[in-house]
Write a protein that binds this DNA or RNA. Structure first.
Lengths: 243, 243
DNA sequence: TACTATTGTTACAATATGCAACAATAGTAA
DNA sequence: TTACTATTGTTGCATATTGTAACAATAGTA
């Protein structure tokens, strides 16, 4: 789907998409010790939801997720992680979407593509908060970062999807180089530990963490960082892996 | 979907199912130190595939998987584990299904439900080899156990699906009470270890395994088992958890 | 009663992790 | 220059976990 602006977006050719199949993206960012998630707000409503999309008939499921990530952030080459597929009947509630369509001048016909039941596969991405430029949907007027602990009320089962994404992130924190995507290129050990503590929601032992990270062999020590503060300057580190 | 036999099965009301959405079940059994998987063989072809199915419009994704498991094994109350959703375009190859339909007297019309592209969610189940009574599909003439190391060539991406199921099983072996489902109610420590070794595909340290299992607190020691062999009789154990 | 094969258990080493103390040091203030 | 502060890097020690090997127990056999 091409990135467009303006009215022409209203005439999406829904025939080009698989019916019933959707993806939702939980896009994590990190800034000042807080985990952030990209959330869409639908136009002229108080409806909030995860950025999501549908799967073109000529596109892999993974590609659909990558495309949605690109459309909302202009970021490419971000590793996406499929974490769960949500197929409960409870998630089928077309009312909010009907209202969204009306607010956008779309006729909510009974069999409209947007009003069917969808099974949605959740993907999570870790992106650089500063590099991502959130871009709204054609149905939404904002796509913004929200603190994970100050999210608005979300439509459908999207809060549950975020919960699952977070659980999955926590379980795989040692296998995914979370620092590689969520931190600057160069960082101190404290910054890395703060990130881990934020994700895991608990404090970690300082020296133990230090040792573990050094022993992992994935970090290169670059040089010192003079912070201007009255104490020993921390070293700077960089990941020596691609991901 | 009711379990039926005979011609009336040919007239499935495909309208009752979600288009494009499927589930596939990797049903594991265990017998004589070998992992088994239930595989379907389509009628009058050399086509083999995993038991799978579609999702009724009024049914949860999980329920569809449970239903398929029940239809093929008559087993209920088995815990199913969703492990991955397969959505690659490569899996879209309607040729074999067209042949299957012809062999079954079904007209493979261009837009037939069975010939569309599906995104399929994989579920795995651990079942009691002796209790399961494999039952063929209405399109298949057998549903049988195959040794995991002597599988026939499978259609589509089903070999990849099995691979993923096995990886997931290995990763979660300590969280899923595999012995509870794959072994008899009462078992010796050696039988339990043999099961683990089979699943993990490697030998495990005998005393370390023993200690770990005992320390887990999930086993009750029942009594001794006189095997008739000329050595110390092993204890029998039973899980003290429901799952 | 001795022997065999296998099980249950324990001792010890190697490794990982949690905790606390110590040493190093960039800036600050005298 | 020198003491002081706050934080970092490092190390030692207790604890827990796991791998390895040895030893003790024992059901059946000869």
């Amino acid at each position: 789907m091409e990135q467009k602006t303006g009215k022409e977006n209203y005439e999406v050719d829904w025939e080009g998409f698989m019916p019933g199949v959707a993806i939702d993206c939980v896009i994590f960012g990190y800034h000042e010790k807080v985990l952030k998630i990209l959330i869409l707000e639908y136009k002229e409503t108080d409806f909030f939801a995860l950025p999501g999309g549908f799967v073109r008939k000529d596109e892999n499921l993974d590609e659909a997720a990558r495309r949605v990530l690109y459309e909302r952030t202009k970021l490419r080459d971000i590793s996406l992680n499929q974490f769960f597929t949500f197929g409960s009947l409870k998630r089928f509630n077309p009312k909010p979407m009907r209202i969204v369509m009306q607010k956008n001048g779309l006729e909510p016909t009974k069999d409209h593509f947007l009003l069917q039941r969808f099974v949605s596969t959740g993907y999570s991405a870790l992106v650089d908060f500063k590099e991502a430029k959130p871009i709204a949907d054609f149905l939404s007027d904002s796509c913004r970062w929200y603190d994970i602990h100050h999210l608005p009320s979300l439509l459908w089962d999207h809060e549950q999807i975020i919960q699952k994404a977070l659980e999955s992130l926590r379980e795989n924190i040692d296998h995914r180089a979370v620092g590689l995507n969520l931190l600057d290129d160069e960082f101190t050990m404290r910054e890395l530990r703060n990130l881990y503590e934020t994700i895991l929601g608990k404090e970690l032992n300082r020296s133990g963490f230090h040792r573990k990270m050094i022993n992992s062999g994935r970090l290169d020590r670059i040089g010192k960082k003079n912070t201007g503060e009255a104490h020993r300057a921390p070293y700077l580190y960089r990941f020596n892996i691609e991901e």
